[in-house]
Design a protein around this nucleic acid. Sequence first.
RNA 1: GGACGAUUGGCUCAGCGGUAGAGCACCACAUUGACAUUGUGGGGGUCACUGGUUCGAUCCCAGUAUCGUCCA
Length: 857
Amino acid sequence: MTKRELAPSFIPADVEPRLYSHWVESGYFTADSASSKEPFTIVIPPPNVTGNLHIGHALDQTLQDCLTRMKRMQGYEALWLPGMDHAGIATQNVVEKQLAAQGLTRHDLGREEFVKKVWEWKAESGGQILGQMKRLGDSVDWTREAFTMDETLSQAVLTIFKKLFDADLIYRAERIINWCPRCLTALSDIEVEHQDDAGEFVSVRYGDGEQSIVVATTRAETMMGDGAVAVHPDDPRYKHLIGTEVLLPLVNRMIPIIADELVDPDFGTGAVKVTAAHDPNDFEMAVRHNVPFVVIMNEHGVMADTGTEFDGMDRFDARVAVVAKLKELGRVVEEKRPYIHAVGHCSRCDTTVEPRLSKQWFVKVAPLAKAAGDAVRDGRVKIEPAELAPRYFDWIDNMHDWCISRQLWWGHRIPVWYGPNGEVVVVGPGESAPAGYEQDPDVLDTWFSSALWPFSTLGWPNETADLKKFYPTSVLVTGYDILFFWVARMMLFGLFAMDGVPPFGTIVLHGLVRDQFGKKMSKSKGNVVDPLEFIDKYGADALRFTLARGSNPGKDQALAEDWIAGSRNFATKLWNATRFAIMNGATVEGDLPPLDSLNAIDKWILSRLSETTAEYSELLNTYEFARASEVIYHFAWDDLCDWYLELSKEAFATGNAESTKRVLGFVLDQLFRLLHPLMPFITEELWTSFTGGETLMSAAWPIVDTSHLDKTSENLITELQRVITEVRRFRNDQGVKPSQKIPGRFIAPADIAQYSSAMAFLLKLDLVDFTPSASVEIGSVKCELDLSSAIDIDAERSRLEKDLATARKDLATAEVKLNNQGFMAKAPESVVVEIRERQAAMTADIERITAQLAALK
RNA sequence: GGACGAUUGGCUCAGCGGUAGAGCACCACAUUGACAUUGUGGGGGUCACUGGUUCGAUCCCAGUAUCGUCCA
């Protein structure tokens, strides 16, 4: 490769597609399982096959790509494995919707045809997100792309199912499960979202006279399924009724009054109806007290088999009708409406979930969850940030058995076959069911296969080279919102399947992307943003840098278009600085000149670079993306562009910059490397153009050179900066235009005086003989100027008075401390010294400013 | 009800036992010399409240208030 000229401005759309194809074609993303390098592995949280890239993916993937690219440059065999999830319910819904448009249901097609249709849909319009990931610059290994319904991943599902079944960790049972009457399937606990809905709370009298009791309910329609009324055993109001029976209205059935600790005597009337087949708590009590299960609703949430006028009514219509009827009968004692309470909704379609008695397959989680909790407790798996670990424990230590069967067609069919006489056989990979057996019609929860992702994608259960090289994965990066859905489940299955080796070393949890005011993005609020639009408008690097810069561990971030524009400006800044450097002959050829031959400005930028490299690398290693971004941003913009380039302009202008050309070349080269994980496109373009190198992707990560650390030069440049800022301020106060050259000179100690011409160059001062009409004093430095007219005394006085006030205030605070005996006795020596120095400096300043003020008259 | 977190300039957020920071926004000046997607200078905060610990608290502790998220 050869060095190229840079275009006058950076146009991301001209650069990004070209670079990305080049990267892929060159195989830079492809990891080698035969390599002797230490592995670094990340598996992507698989997006849904139905999904499009949203801003949350953009954040998640930016962080993963950043880590992967950095590790690759640090010499690891880095694998970032991409893929997708078949997303059972979501995908089935999409295809069913298409069928519905033609007036068809999946039953019209039949199971086999329908599943075929879903595969066709996947081939045609699924997986759009993969193309969108390329826009972001994701350095994923496309040769290893996986899909949860792939043959090998399906083998993994069969294998683990059988393994769990044989270990008695999978069982079938009739339980109350969460049922979506629209999707017509069971849901796991976490697929249910609780919302505060406005319902009603109705108190109804059961029985009559002495033999009566008032129960309160939000679900009056279920009363026809009541098998008992429950009270707390110690409740004095009802003690005498325990063991007796009351008449259940509407159906006129006698039901017992039972006592159970589960009842909260302070809630409602302290008496609750027990509807065993339609409520999980009631189910538990019913089992304890032998209360009968009365089913009064079908799978569509329609009342059925009650033998009343309500049969055939939708559950919500029935609720109204039942209350009306009870009122008519004079049985309603009290009504609260609206009554705000938490109601479960299907996370896929938002339909109110109906607890339903049903026979389903479950994973017995207790032993698995114990292991999953212990792996974090004993430090084999770290959760970052640590504050989120209690949330993990809270959940995993109290996890209920996991309902894994779904009454869907799209997904991994449960590998259980039933014989004619009720035999149950689990059919593992490569096995087949005995003749005449029929397979369970249900499929597995999508998260069942996702839970295998860190090893099923590497070829498990086969002992592949990939599995050997890349398992366990290094880091799992994901939003805290799917800690339970996915992360915890990978822990359960990973530890079980892989003989106790946890699926990852560190779990890095980031927050959600919110709108510019910190509000949650939602379609209804209309504040959802499209990352692709931002990429079109500002470039992928700008979006990535913005997201990384906002990403504090485990915390949500606000995002505004203005911030992205700011990052685009940063990219422009880098582009222009590099053009300037090239124009002035900056180079990466040859060795860096010996340090002692360099001027303080060059030594200073090298020192700052070393500090920045150390700090930045450490921050990225600890997943502090926001702070890392901040550090590198300020190094590039403030230290390099605003100060180093400015201070070096005089050297370039006078042709006395041989060393500086090499130092600048070195600093840019290193800066591009550091920034590459966050801004891969622009850094690649700049670096290859500037150095003529093949690719920055495989360039070595900068190493901190401690010999470059130089506090003397840093202190000196800090002094120069103070002087320059003060003179600029003076010029500004005096109304001297920034571009106007005026005569000036410095009276300063030798180490500073040495840089008079550099300072004069950027202060637009002419170092000629003149009679000064004004001066500015900054510590030991005096800058004399010729304003060619009388100075603005008012402006000068107000400037000096302001400085004086500040100095006096600072002196006062310092003296309060020094006069405090407690402070003098107990404060560390270093702090005392610092305050003493401050006192001396402020005293000197006050003296100087006072003299200047006096001289103004 | 339980768990966790937050409360810092107009907005969004860092930070932290020893003189309050950033980005954006705001005000002023500047357009032949990398960059107006810019430069320079400037204004702006009693760090939610009340106690406590400490020589010293925005920071640690306790309580209060408000807000948020997750779980039940």
